[in-house]
Computed example of a mutant assay.
Amino acid sequence: MVEIKTSREVAAMGVTGAFIAGLLDDLEGLAKPGVNLLDLEHRARDLIAERGASSCYWDYAPSFGRGPFRNVICLSVNDAVLHGLPHSYTLRDGDLLSMDIAVSIDGWVADSARSVIVGTARAEDVHLIEATERALAAGISAAVPGNRLGDISAAIGAVATSYGYSVNTEFGGHGLGRTMHEDPHVPNMGRAGRGLKLRPGLTLALEPWLASGTDKIVYDPDGWTIRSADGSRTAHSEHTIAVTDGRALVLTASNGQL
Rank of each mutant, 00 (worst) to 15 (best):
D215I: 00
L85Y: 15
E9D: 12
T169E: 05
W58K: 00
I217G: 00
F64V: 10
L91N: 03
L96W: 02
G164A: 03
A11Q: 06
S115A: 04
L210N: 09
D26V: 02
A18P: 01
H239Y: 14
L149Q: 10
G34W: 00
S232C: 04
A18Y: 10
V167D: 14
W58L: 09
M13I: 15
R134S: 08
T234L: 04
W58P: 05
A135F: 04
T132D: 05
T90P: 05
V77F: 02
N36L: 00
Q257K: 09
L176A: 06
M1D: 06
R66E: 14
I156C: 07
D106K: 14
L37T: 11
L251E: 06
V126I: 15
L82H: 03
A18L: 10
A155G: 01
E50Y: 01
V35H: 01
T203E: 13
A211R: 09
L30K: 04
L37K: 04
G84Y: 09
A229R: 11
G175Q: 04
Y60W: 15
R51W: 02
S153W: 13
A253P: 00
A110L: 10
I226N: 01
H42Y: 13
P184F: 08
F69Q: 08
L149P: 14
A12Q: 11
G22Q: 03
S228P: 01
A138C: 03
I105D: 15
L196A: 03
T214E: 06
I156Q: 11
D245F: 04
G119L: 01
G256C: 03
